[in-house]
Structures are given as C-alpha cells and as structure tokens.
C-alpha cells in the first residue's frame, strides 16, 4: 500500500493550485524515494516536474511502485476542503481504484476523509538531460511574479538576458515596450530580498509570457525562484520547497522565424 502524511498539508494545496491550470490530468508516481509527477501542458510547449522526497513526509510508506492518474481539477476540489493548517495523509491500496485524502485539524478535533477516483492516463515520460546552464539567477519569487505579470500587459513574449551583474526582462507590444532590470544584490540583512547571479556565459532568450505567468502561480511555495538558462535550450523555472522537494517548470524558447 501507499501511505504518506504531510504535516504541512498546505504545501500540497499550493502545489496543486500552481499546476492545475497548466496541466489537465497527470500520473502521480510513488516509489520508495518519494512522490513525483511529470507532465506536459496540452500544447506540449512546457513540462512540469514535481518531486517530493520521502524524507520530507512525517510518515511515508510505499510497498510497491504505483502510478495514480488524477484529473487536477478534481484533486484541487478535494484539497480545497482541507484547512490551511491541516495535516494531510494520502492513502491508497495496491491496485486500488481510489486514493483517500485524510485531513486532520491541528488540535485533532476534526478529521475528514475524501476519496478520489483514480483514472487511467496515458503519459509519456521525457528524459531531462542533466545540463550545466550558462546562467543561473535566483531572485525573490514575488519579484519574478510581478515582472512577468507587468510585462504581459504590454507584450506576449519576454526576452530574458543575463549578464554578470544583472538580469533584464524586456518586451514589445502594440502600445509600446517595457524593460525591467534586476541587479545582483546579495543582501545579507534581508536574505529574502536577495538576487544572485551565477554565469559562465552571457545569455539572452525569448519566451512566451503566458507560460511564465502560469508558472508564477507557484510563488506561495517559496521565497525565491531559480531561473536556469542556456543558449537554445528550454528555461528552467524552479521553486524549492524547503525540506520537502521542488517544483520545476521547463519552457521551450521562441525562435526567430
């Protein structure tokens, strides 16, 4: 059987809220090392990869590898019934056709159970090569969210360019253009506001803002987001979930016609 208890159930709620508009349904894969998911959006332009480590759960048991297909909208409906301070336990029997979500309030006075029917979902796993990136930028997740939201009111695409000292986000549209630059700032007294840049090669790539705005729905998961860029490769937009794992998004670049 599979059984996993997450004291901070809100994490699971936030993960599902972050991906439910991007992917319709997905297989959640559970094995000894943890709970994971990989899925493409319906236009096959971006890829979501979630990884929650077994040791990030207070209790984790997985007797055999299982793949549980769920419609994200339905999973979201159920998780919305969990309180923000509830602990969430997921349970499924081997070869079972449902997964049970148990929500426990902090004082343990309220206990609720919801069963979600599992579905058969055809999914293809893509091999994500281990790559050294030309540039890695770590910036406050709220800052990234604001930038992609602001730029989307001007244009459809953003050019992200990284140099040693700064990362620039630029767009053009019918009404005009916009540029936002964030300088490297390894702020010691306010680590949550730091922007850190690590580059081997300056890089500039263009991406669809629609997808970046969708990825930014993961902002509540982490104080920072990590952007990884290499020439002619998909950008990685990564949210680290402290002590538990990470949620990564990959987006193919736009190329000149």
């Amino acid at each position: 059987m599979f059984e996993a208890r997450l004291q901070q159930g809100a994490l699971l709620k936030k993960v599902v809220e972050a991906i439910k508009d991007l992917i319709e349904d997905a297989n959640f894969d559970c094995n000894n090392s943890g709970f994971s998911l990989q899925a493409m959006d319906s236009s096959h332009v971006s890829l979501v990869a979630l990884s929650l480590r077994a040791d990030g759960f207070e209790h984790y048991r997985c007797d055999r590898n299982v793949s549980m297909g769920m419609k994200l909208a339905n999973l979201s409906k159920i998780l919305k019934c969990a309180g923000n301070d509830d602990a969430i336990t997921m349970k499924s029997e081997d070869n079972g056709d449902t997964i049970t979500f148990m929500f426990e309030s902090q004082n343990q006075e309220r206990l609720s159970e919801f069963d979600l029917k599992l579905m058969d979902i055809d999914s293809e796993h893509l091999g994500i090569p281990e790559a050294e990136y030309d540039a890695t930028v770590k910036l406050p997740s709220s800052e990234f969210q604001r930038i992609v939201k602001d730029l989307a009111s001007i244009g459809d695409t953003v050019e992200i360019s990284v140099t040693k000292d700064a990362v620039k986000f630029g767009t053009n549209g019918d009404i005009g253009s916009a540029n936002v630059m964030c300088r490297q700032n390894k702020s010691v007294d306010k680590p949550e506001e730091s922007t850190e840049i690590d580059i081997t090669e300056p890089v500039a790539l263009t991406f669809a803002l629609r997808y970046l705005n969708s990825f930014a729905k993961a902002t509540p998961l982490s104080s920072h987001v990590v952007l990884k860029l290499s020439k002619d490769l998909p950008i990685v937009v990564e949210y680290h979930i402290e002590n538990v794992g990470r949620l990564s998004f990959f987006l193919a670049p736009k190329v000149e016609e």
Partner: peptide, 14 residues
C-alpha cells in the same frame, strides 16, 4: 504560435 518550439524537440521520450 509562430516561432514557438515544442518541449519534445529538446527532451526525448524515455
């Protein structure tokens, strides 16, 4: 969308 590459042109099927 014009100029938009698919993700599978970068990451192959496992």
């Amino acid at each position: 969308a014009p100029g938009q590459k698919g993700i599978m042109s970068f990451f192959g099927k496992k």
